[in-house]
Amino acid sequence: MNKANSSVLRNQNNQTSEVTFILVGFSEYPDLQVPLFLVFLSIYTVSVLGNLGMIAVIRVNPKLHTPMYFFLSHLSFVDFCYSTVVTPKLLENLIVEDRTLSFTSCIMQFFFACVFVVTETFMLAVMAYDRFVAVCKPLHYTVAMSQKLCSLLVGTSYCWGLFCSLTLTCFLVKLPFQGNNVINNFVCEHAAIVAVSCSDTYISQMIILVSATFNEISSLMTILTSYGFIFTTIMKMPSPGGRHKVFSTCASHLTAITIFHGTILFLYCVPTTKSSWLMVKVASVFYTVVIPMLNPLIYSLRNKDVKETVWKLIKNKFHCHIS
């Protein structure tokens, strides 16, 4: 019995080691390969500099050592991570002919991308709760949003992202694949991987649908409830100046939420058909490449403290070079 089991296990390992994935990416548009490479390289550069710069600015300025900026620094870290998981491979595939990826590499790319996307989903919800406490319970804000609670909320977001990713990856690994598998995307995305499996994928597809729907509903309920209370509080404020100040503080976060959740809802909570693969690619580009670039721009351009810190750092650097 042991010999039979070991023989089956050996055969499964051999089959897995021989499985490869070929990322189609944007190869059907050969004339756009170089322009797309330059565009994505520019976006990725801005994303890396923007997110790492945001983390650095928050660390440098003591005025920004508050719960809101603590969450924002982790949002920037998550954006940097999942952009880095996906974009370098996308850039490579735009300039090389061999777009082959091993089974392990493809699964690992999906695993890490999933961890950071789910984490960001709940990080945005945590930030909404932070804004709710700041606006609706300002006198209790310091006590309510203690360092311990902030760390717990961030840690829970990371842990839930890891749990969801492990669950989905386990079901993906159990699916049988054979030989070279063409993935009609530039990233090892769940629907694209499942589509090339040589067995019934109903369970795996249902799990991703249920998981994505649960994550969206639970995080959006937190966000909508928080902002429902925020808007009620804003409307009760007697001063128009006070209302404008609070709304302007929340506007950046609302913009980031709308862009991120709108894309995720379209991509994961709508059944995929063969005719919609191009739209899936566009949506995937948006949330893996474009959104990580947009978030630091959204928060920095609308934030006076961040802009002041950046200008001080630039001026200090300039004066150092002159002296």
Rank of each mutant, 00 (worst) to 15 (best):
T258P: 09
P176L: 13
P176F: 09
S248R: 11
F177L: 12
F71H: 07
V86G: 00
M68I: 01
F21H: 02
V182F: 14
S6N: 08
S105G: 00
R99T: 12
V85W: 02
T263E: 14
V143N: 15
Q15W: 02
N181P: 06
L168M: 14
L49T: 11
T255N: 10
P296G: 00
F229H: 06
I208G: 01
E92K: 08
I234S: 11
C170P: 10
L168K: 09
V96G: 01
I58G: 05
V282Q: 12
A256Y: 03
T263P: 09
T20M: 03
W160T: 01
S6Q: 12
S252E: 07
F171E: 15
P238Y: 13
V117Q: 02
V210M: 04
V117S: 04
V143K: 15
F214Q: 00
T142L: 14
I217Q: 02
F163R: 02
I55V: 14
L278T: 13
V117R: 03
L75N: 00
E216K: 02
K174W: 07
L139I: 13
I259E: 12
L32D: 12
W311A: 14
L9Q: 06
F177D: 08
N13Y: 04
S219T: 02
R59V: 10
F214G: 01
F40W: 07
V19Y: 03
R243H: 05
V126H: 05
T45G: 05
S6C: 05
G53N: 02
Q109E: 09
L301K: 12
A283T: 06
G242T: 11
F229G: 10
K312S: 10
V133I: 13
F286K: 04
V135E: 11
F132Q: 12
E97V: 05
F214A: 00
F132C: 10
M235V: 11
T104E: 11
F116D: 01
I322F: 10
C159R: 00
I193R: 01
E18W: 05
M123Q: 03
P296H: 01
H319I: 10
V46I: 12
A191K: 13
L265I: 13
F132D: 11
V78P: 00
V310S: 02
L91Y: 03
M123W: 02
N2M: 08
M127W: 01
M127T: 06
G262K: 12
R302K: 13
E216Y: 04
A56C: 12
V8R: 09
Y158C: 03
V290L: 15
I259V: 15
C81W: 02
T45A: 09
F70D: 08
A251E: 08
L75R: 00
C250R: 02
Y202K: 14
Q12G: 01
L91I: 03
L209Y: 09
E97F: 06
V19S: 03
F37W: 09
T121V: 12
V39H: 07
C164G: 06
M127F: 08
M237T: 13
T87Q: 00
N11W: 04
V8A: 07
